[in-house]
Amino acid sequence: MIKGACQAPGLRPVRVAGQAAVGGLLLAGLGWTLRAAWEIRLALAGEPASGPPDQGNGVHRPLDGLENAYHVVTSVANLAALVCAVSFLSWLVRVRDNARTLSGRPPRYAGVWVYLGWIVPVVNFWFPRGLVADAFRASAPGRKVPFTVNLWWGLWLAGTLSGVGLVYKDSTDEVIARAYDEVWPLLASDAALVGAAVAGAFVVRAVTRAQTAAPRPA
């Protein structure tokens, strides 16, 4: 549970939203951990004699039990990631609004970037981190942005932009073939995303605590 002083008057409540965001992040981390575990199982089992599931030219062989299980695990992990995204963005909207109230100044980033900042090329390298960092600075003037913010963002970029993370375009069957052929890049991406989820939970707690302890805005 995120503990802190009573919410300052004039600010949107963020404690429950922070708890939901922490839960969503940890749930997403668990989903990526399960994916990694199944990728290890696939690598240890080795590719069947019949070859990879996607055999090219539109031909797909029937999946075995382990491959079918990986499809289920992937779907569960994707659902967990969706829950994480919704809860995190809901929290981020609130802390951004509170940062504007606490600082008395317009935010550096327009509200639309809370959503588009994650998907628009180039700006997605720094806008989301900037939104979180600005919320912390407005909530705790004079305090240094926690190291976990940079750790979270660095791991997130490593996991999503490595070519095997959230943004790769391979189908699940193609990922299974990767696990058979060379599992280490997949595991490295999974580890980065799990680390980002855990670090992100600490980031949410830090910003939420700063805002619940913030003095009453003038």
Results as ranks from 00 to 15, higher is better:
11 L>G: 12
67 E>I: 05
106 P>C: 02
201 A>R: 01
3 K>V: 08
205 R>V: 00
203 V>Q: 00
118 W>P: 08
152 W>Q: 01
86 V>Y: 13
217 P>C: 09
156 W>K: 08
73 V>L: 03
9 P>G: 04
201 A>H: 02
198 V>Y: 00
31 G>P: 12
154 G>L: 06
188 A>P: 01
143 R>S: 13
24 G>D: 12
18 G>E: 08
135 A>S: 15
79 L>V: 15
62 P>W: 05
108 R>F: 03
91 W>K: 06
154 G>T: 11
103 S>H: 08
63 L>P: 08
19 Q>E: 14
126 W>I: 00
95 V>E: 11
204 V>W: 06
146 P>Y: 01
72 V>A: 13
185 P>W: 04
101 T>Q: 15
23 G>E: 02
53 P>F: 09
185 P>C: 06
15 R>P: 12
10 G>A: 09
101 T>R: 13
79 L>N: 03
65 G>D: 13
121 P>H: 10
159 G>T: 01
132 V>F: 10
171 S>R: 09
88 F>W: 08
154 G>Y: 01
143 R>E: 15
75 S>I: 06
47 E>L: 11
179 A>S: 15
18 G>K: 07
65 G>K: 14
12 R>T: 15
127 F>H: 04
145 V>P: 06
174 E>P: 01
35 R>T: 02
136 F>T: 07
94 R>S: 07
174 E>R: 14
148 T>P: 00
134 D>P: 04
106 P>H: 06
123 V>A: 06
202 F>S: 01
85 A>H: 05
84 C>F: 10
115 Y>M: 15
64 D>E: 10
211 Q>G: 11
165 G>V: 04
98 N>W: 04
134 D>M: 05
162 S>N: 08
151 L>I: 02
23 G>S: 05
188 A>Y: 02
8 A>G: 09
157 L>Q: 12
167 V>K: 04
44 L>C: 05
198 V>K: 00
29 G>W: 00
110 A>L: 07
66 L>C: 03
168 Y>N: 13
35 R>A: 03
2 I>H: 10
211 Q>H: 10
